[in-house]
């Protein structure tokens, strides 16, 4: 039990890390990773939704009739997303302004629905929470690392939280504007996928 628990948790961190290995959830991955801070915020919001929707779906898996399961999943997921949206507005308003439309869009994030259908609907609550947490943390790390690459090259800074950069390039650094614009996300993601494949193959 403990072994499979650890397995379900860690698979989200490397073997099935969402944007790079499953190549799911690309809409927020490409759109919000302009900075590390945005990436972490989006990742944490998604993790919250993933963990709680996985838990609830797994608890209700024997009650939900299979013909309306997708509708039920969407209701559960949408409820948690709205909770996240309200809480972010109430407590981290500045981050909410930056992420804006992408918070409600977590509802249709393939990762959340994908984990509900592929995992939580077939496994017990403990394993499902481990799966959701692992996937969520993997997603957060992916967004943060992609955000770090883009922010460093495009703006010359790394900002973890609250607007003050923890690292700044020297004054001679010319920001690579392209990286913080939309096409930069594709190029950054592509290069990171490529590197992960090289490392994973050896």
């Amino acid at each position: 039990m403990a072994q499979s628990l650890a397995k379900e948790f860690t698979k989200g961190l490397w073997a099935e890390i969402p944007p790079f290995r499953l190549v799911l959830g690309l809409c927020p991955t490409l759109a919000v990773t302009k900075s590390v801070e945005n990436g972490i915020g989006m990742g944490v919001a998604t993790t919250f939704v993933l963990v709680f929707s996985n838990l609830l779906i797994s608890l209700l898996r024997n009650v939900i009739p299979s013909k309306v399961r997708i509708a039920c999943y969407v209701v559960i997921i949408a409820t948690f997303v709205t909770i996240v949206e309200l809480l972010m507005q109430a407590y981290t308003y500045e981050l909410f302004l930056k992420l804006g439309i992408f918070i409600p869009l977590i509802v249709v994030n393939c990762i959340v629905l994908g984990r509900a259908e592929a995992f939580a609907s077939k496994n017990g609550p403990v394993l499902s929470v481990a799966d959701g947490l692992g996937m969520g943390i993997g997603f957060t790390l992916s967004l943060a690392s992609l955000g770090a690459v883009r922010e460093l090259l495009g703006n010359g800074t790394i900002t973890i939280w609250g607007g003050t950069p923890i690292f700044e390039m020297g004054a001679n650094f010319l920001p690579f504007q392209f990286m913080i614009e939309a096409p930069g996300a594709f190029v950054g993601l592509g290069l990171m996928l490529c590197m992960m494949n090289i490392v994973g193959k050896k």
Binding site: I64, P65, V68, V75, T79, I83
Partner: peptide, 13 residues
Amino acid sequence: VLTVLTAFSGGLL
């Protein structure tokens, strides 16, 4: 199931 689920989430929200 659908009615109970939506009613519950509506109330919670």
